[in-house]
Design a protein around this nucleic acid. Structure first.
Lengths: 262, 262
DNA sequence: TAGTGGTCTAGACCACTTC
DNA sequence: AAGTGGTCTAGACCACTAA
């Protein structure tokens, strides 16, 4: 469809909408390459720069991504992993040594290698959020366990857990060894310490990523993130873990099923 | 900070990062106006067009928004409304006639006027998602109740519910009257029909909005949306409502608390 | 090496807001 | 009327990829 000079939308917007329609109609397949910017410029009778503006709009919308020297491609939608509360089921980590982390992988029937997770443990001062979760003063020393989780080499999310030093000191949780908390997972370790997880609160919010998050998760333009806050309690209401996750939005769905309260 | 020619980041990126830092440090207050593009151009020794590129980056990141003829402004972060499962509590709609919808408003201690919600009811053919939720054939006739919810005149989300015609035919739910389902809310009506809601499943996913969603929710550039799917069951497992919500991400946090399953 | 996307400039015109 | 952001052009150069 050529440019319509009567159309109130500027040419770059018309072109963007046009290309978007091509993609959504499947005429440009998912993952397929768009015509080169020069060709589009000739086709629509505008400058290459105008085409770039149109492409820029589509990038912000998460529709396409570009590789310099190679082309502009319709962004394929990755398979979504569904995160339900059963990923925390006690049977998964109580005796078996399987952990929620690995259970997620198995549920999605994709191969998993331990190298998909990198982990660093350090002692840090509690920021206000962490402090509030534990009910301590900001600045209190805490253990921080930061993980970057990848799927087939593609980073999908970060997950940073905080623990009271007195709860985890001397356990394998605070070893710097990579993998799911040494072995057995954080919940198993806490259980061994007499602090069995019993209840979880999860808070979710979505936003655009910071430049730093773009870098560590290698996010394409137009990819939002979901920030997850997880607070874990024992049966008597004691907070034993607070975790912050940053998830590449297009890889996940969260699913909760609950009885309607009185 | 002037442009650094050795820096690998292109000038427009350096400027964007620079301005972002100004905002995050509070030197440009939330809601405040940035210097004009001409002034920034002079300050950094680049063209206005380059400044526009820098601003474009910040817009995609949801950091600023611009009003033609007026200026570019640091986007204020709206107060977040926390959505917990108590917004569905039976006590809120069973006898009182208050509905989850209105209860949300009260919990957030903001004034609410019925005009904040517009509603249209129609009969439609089930799309695949709706069909799957109810376990019927795609194309089956269903009632659709579409609502656009606003907060102080600002649209915050849409919510479109689907019902089996046999469940709601002849009730005030299918009146085209505006407001929360006439009066009493959808859950109250279903209860009167002998179909008391008992369990809910919510699925959440975040993504960038479609052009259509941008229009109806009047979303600024760089604002992601959260798509919420809600399926409501009776005590014997019958699906009585399926709803799809599209929420402007920066207005909401979802909060779930649950016991860790065995 | 040829082709791709990424960036920038200098200048122009337009649409909108504010005074 | 003056100032603001929005868009487009024509041309140039650069960085990267693939043959």
């Amino acid at each position: 469809m050529p440019i319509n000079p009567v159309d109130p939308r500027p040419p770059s917007q018309q072109i963007a909408d046009d290309v978007r329609a091509e993609i959504e109609a499947g005429r440009i397949p998912s993952g397929g390459r768009l015509p080169s910017t020069s060709e589009l410029a000739a086709r629509y009778g505008v400058t290459r720069e105008t085409i770039r503006q149109a492409i820029a709009r589509l990038k912000s919308a998460g529709i396409v991504s570009s590789r310099q020297g190679s082309g502009v491609f319709a962004r394929p939608r990755p398979a979504m992993k569904r995160l339900g509360i059963n990923r925390y089921a006690k049977s998964l980590w109580r005796d078996t040594g399987i952990v929620a982390f690995a259970a997620d992988r198995e549920a999605s029937s994709r191969t998993w290698s331990p190298g998909d997770q990198t982990q660093t443990v350090s002692e840090v001062a509690a920021d206000p959020q962490v402090a509030e979760a534990f009910g301590v003063e900001p600045g209190t020393r805490m253990y921080e366990r930061a993980r970057l989780v990848a799927e087939q080499g593609v980073p999908t999310h970060t997950l940073t857990s905080y623990y009271r030093p007195s709860d985890v000191e001397g356990t394998r949780l605070v070893d710097a060894a990579p993998g799911p908390a040494g072995r057995g997972g954080g919940f198993a370790v806490l259980t061994e310490q007499g602090l069995e997880p019993h209840e979880i609160q999860e808070d979710l919010t979505a936003r655009m990523p910071t430049p730093r998050e773009v870098q560590t998760l290698r996010l394409p333009p137009g990819e939002p993130i979901v920030e997850l806050h997880r607070t874990t309690y024992t049966a008597d209401g004691r907070v034993i873990e607070f975790a912050r996750g940053v998830h590449s939005a297009s890889h996940f769905t969260w699913s909760y099923k609950f009885k309607i309260p009185e």
